[in-house]
């Protein structure tokens, strides 16, 4: 775990990239590359594809850095969203919708202790508590979608549930989460 006191603030790095400071993008890559590669890898489960995703994400970050607004959210979240969206688009292009399951996923993803890692960052404790209050399969569906980029159909196959049920659950789970976090 990087020491949060020593780690450069992502928002500050994004600002430096936007200002065109020499070496700023490299500093941002050094500070955030592993986290962003991890996000893409969890979704794509293929190192080459995840590398493609990080490549595209870093170019997007360089092009859009000036649009980052610290008043609207944290730098780490902004970077994470860009990496996720690039990886999801790539997963879609690779025919995510037609896959029924992926043996490379394993079980570790939705193990209960994964949620405890959330609480390590204190401000995230609330989200963890709200997730914990959801029904187990609701929670699992949401994590499989967000962290692993699974489609409705893939989640349905994995949880051995009808597609319509999964869609309704996810919708309901998101609504509960919104109410709980409000």
């Amino acid at each position: 775990m990087p020491d949060s006191h020593a780690a450069p603030d992502p928002a500050e790095l994004i600002r430096a990239v936007a200002a065109g400071e020499t070496g700023a993008l490299r500093r941002l890559y050094d500070a955030q590359g592993s986290r962003l590669f991890g996000i893409a890898l969890a979704i794509l489960r293929d190192r080459d594809a995840a590398a493609d995703a990080l490549h595209d994400a870093v170019l997007k970050v360089a092009a859009r850095a000036a649009q980052f607004d610290p008043a609207r959210g944290e730098g780490a979240a902004w970077l994470g969203a860009i990496a996720r969206n690039v990886a999801l688009d790539l997963a879609r292009a690779r025919g995510r919708e037609t896959l029924s399951d992926d043996p490379a996923l394993g079980d570790a993803a939705v193990a209960p202790e994964a949620l405890d890692r959330l609480a390590a960052a204190q401000q995230h404790g609330r989200l963890r508590d709200c997730l914990a209050s959801l029904e187990a399969r609701n929670r699992e569906s949401i994590l499989l979608a967000f962290v692993h980029g699974l489609s409705h159909a893939q989640i349905a196959a994995r949880l051995e549930l009808p597609l319509g049920t999964v869609k309704a659950w996810i919708r309901r789970g998101l609504l509960r989460l919104k109410g709980c976090l409000a």
């Binding site: 490299r26 590669f37 890898l41 979240a77 969203a81 993803a109 989200l127 989460l177």
Partner: peptide, 22 residues
């Protein structure tokens, strides 16, 4: 929604990208 769910991306394990990528 990005703000609500962003912390979940911490559930993905960080992994050093391939050395040649930069």
């Amino acid at each position: 929604w990005e703000a609500r769910l962003a912390p979940l991306s911490d559930l993905a394990r960080p992994e050093p990208p391939p050395a040649a990528l930069w």
